[in-house]
Amino acid sequence: MIDAIKFRNYKENTYKWIFTILAFSSLVFLVGIIIVLFKEGLPIFKEVNLFKFLFGKSWYPTYDPPEFGIFPLMLASFWVMIGATIVCVPLGIGSALYLHELASFKQRAFLKPLIEMLAGVPSIVYGFFGMVIVAPFIQKLFNIPVGLSLFTASMILGIMAVPTVCSITEDALSYVPKSFREASFAVGANRWQTLTKVIIPAAGSGISTAIILGMSRIVGETMTVLMVSGGAAIIPKSIFDPVRPMTATIAAEMGECAMGSKHFHALFAIGLILFLVTLFFNIIAEIISRRYRLKLGLGR
């Protein structure tokens, strides 16, 4: 009898430990990544100072002497993010509103998995699609010398981020209690008024979270931008200029540089900055969504 209890306790404890270890292992990886980023990224600042690194206008890592100014790369990432956000926000939120408000049960059951499937398409396929179909089309349409540009990258990345924005927005809308809708209808509001004055404001922070996470996804995307953005490390003057975002730089150059060289450390430093930017986005998104759940009285 006592043995049975002992055995049960023993089993319970084992399970507890296994799951605790599993849960904390992701933390270990996170810490490990941060340590490596700092360890490999910081040495570059012995060569160039932080200000010159961030705001230097030329990126010639293989020249002699090399120049490590990532300003054009940051600017490229920034503009691609803005452009892609302009594409994905209306598409993502619009489709979420359609799914949530207008679609019949059958349509939703059919459309939602379809939109989410967009997220499952490998990014290399997007890149390929952009390179082979979209870029030549844009080149012809606007009669410009190259089709691989800031504009093309924004379009493709924007479409890639649609499922993120759409499904998080849809979740936010469906978290709005049904009772709000009923209350609004009961005082004589029509559907449009209910949507714009009750549902969207109540889901507002959830929708902002969706946008921020979409942006974070765009900034971190690598393969596609590498293929469609054109790859020139210049400060873009128009939306049809080719650009070279930070992620694409790392992916393209990491294979070529000598381990432990200045170039190597510079690429790690870029990675560090990317990490900090996406971390910042994710923290903001978390704060907003937490406040949102509190506002709706859903607890943490």
Partner: peptide, 29 residues
């Protein structure tokens, strides 16, 4: 629905101020 109002099982005020809760029905008219 304007003529036939309804009070529900669970209190369901909007997550707005008290004043906005009451003015809502008037403003939408």
């Amino acid at each position: 629905r304007r003529k036939v109002g309804m009070v529900f099982q669970k209190p369901n005020p909007f997550p707005k101020t008290i004043y906005e809760n009451l003015s809502y029905g008037l403003k939408i008219q």
